[in-house]
Simulated scan of single mutants.
Amino acid sequence: MSARKPILLYFYPAQSSFVVKDLALMQKEYEVRHQGFLPVKKWQTPLVWLGQLFFLLRHIWQAQALVCMFAGYHSWFPALFGKIAAKPCLIVAGGTDCVSFPSIGYGVFANPVLGRFARWSYQLAAHIAPVHEKLVWQDYTYQTNDFPHQGFRYHCPTLVTPHTVIYNGYNAEFWKQDFTIERQPNSFLTVCAGLNMRFTQRLKGVDLILEVAGRVPEATFTIVGAPEGFKFPNQPANVRLLPKMPLEDLKAVYSAHTFYLQLSMSEGFPNALSESMLCGCVPIVSQVGAMPDLIADTGFVLSQRNIHLLERLVREAMEVENTQKLGQKAREIMASHYPEQRRERGLIGLLQKLVG
């Protein structure tokens, strides 16, 4: 009879791909009891908190540790209960919980109340595990409407909670080019949820992609994630919209495009960019978060949010003679530096160390 696995409590604000992947790897070593913090309307937040309170009162005493994906409203009770019950609470800092962009109302620290709960959570936690160093502190020069620095250490200057960087990890055996699909020349791709919202279009740089498409008619631009029947006003003829799709289908779309665009104003360690590189796409990214470090010398970096610079970069990319070689190098970097096993070892090892 096998010994029962130790119990871990896991909390998250949405069931994103990051959450699903971490849940799967933690379940290898722990019995994970998890709860989402998912109010449909703002007024429901106290009710969801009440549900979280009862969940904690029921399970905290059997648990070895608590894990929160992101800091915010949902992490405060777990961090507080962890402190009271002397059970370590680990917060995985993933992106939005490390930044503030008041110009577009984005980031946990752009909201004074939400920012306060995130700060309290970080202070009460036993440890923080950001997915990249740039989420701890980064100089920010991509656009000048917000702060000159970002990162949770910048927005929480008195914070003393220790941190350990644990990179995201990816399955290079699943994410690989489908060689039965012909890769189209001068083809650019981006994947984005919430395309019908102006806020998202600006945050993810989709507005720039639409503008540069009109300036470079000889290229094609594909955007994945469009709601049914959605179309942009004055959408250029060389822009194609595709719906949100299963991962297997997405792999085929990556394989059919030469370049992948990620021109976000804010990013942590983006999944779609990483997946596209494993499928051999040449990356073009904004100088934001982890992205310039991830792509190294395999692609192109947009230093400022400027359409003229972007057009120059797109045309420069189209002149590259051997994009296949560059794409292969992008895959090799992702496969060797950011495998799933590395994140698994780092996360499980840190939890075991915290439990003692």
Rank of each mutant, 00 (worst) to 15 (best):
S2A: 13
I7M: 13
I7D: 13
F11Y: 10
F11W: 06
Y12H: 12
V20I: 15
D22N: 15
M26I: 14
Q27T: 15
R33G: 04
G36M: 08
V40I: 12
Q44V: 02
T45I: 15
L47K: 14
F55H: 11
I60G: 06
L66I: 14
M69I: 04
A71Q: 06
S75A: 11
P78H: 07
F81I: 09
G82L: 09
K83P: 08
K83V: 03
K87I: 07
C89K: 02
G95C: 01
P102M: 12
P102E: 11
S103T: 14
Y106S: 09
Y106E: 10
V108K: 01
N111R: 13
G115R: 06
Y122F: 15
Q123Y: 02
L124R: 04
L124Q: 06
A125C: 01
H132E: 07
H132P: 07
K134A: 14
L135G: 00
N145G: 14
P148R: 03
H149S: 03
H155R: 00
T158R: 13
V160L: 12
T161I: 06
T164Q: 13
I166M: 08
Y167N: 11
Y167K: 04
Y167E: 11
G169E: 14
Y170M: 10
N171Y: 15
Q177I: 09
Q177N: 05
Q177A: 10
D178F: 03
R183A: 02
R183W: 06
V206F: 04
L208P: 03
V212E: 02
A213G: 11
V216M: 10
P217Q: 09
G225Q: 05
P227I: 07
E228W: 10
G229H: 11
P233V: 08
N234E: 08
Q235C: 03
A237Y: 07
M245C: 10
P246R: 09
P246W: 00
L247I: 08
L247G: 01
E248A: 15
K251N: 14
A252W: 05
V253K: 05
Y254L: 04
Y254R: 11
S255D: 06
F259N: 06
L261W: 08
L261S: 08
M265R: 10
M265Y: 04
F269T: 01
P270Q: 10
S274P: 01
M277T: 05
C281N: 15
V288D: 03
A290W: 00
P292F: 08
V301P: 03
L302H: 04
L302N: 00
L302A: 09
S303K: 12
V314I: 15
E316H: 02
V320W: 02
T323F: 01
K325V: 12
Q328T: 05
A330F: 03
E332S: 15
I333W: 08
S336K: 15
E340Y: 11
Q341G: 11
G349M: 07
Q352G: 02
Q352Y: 01
G356A: 14
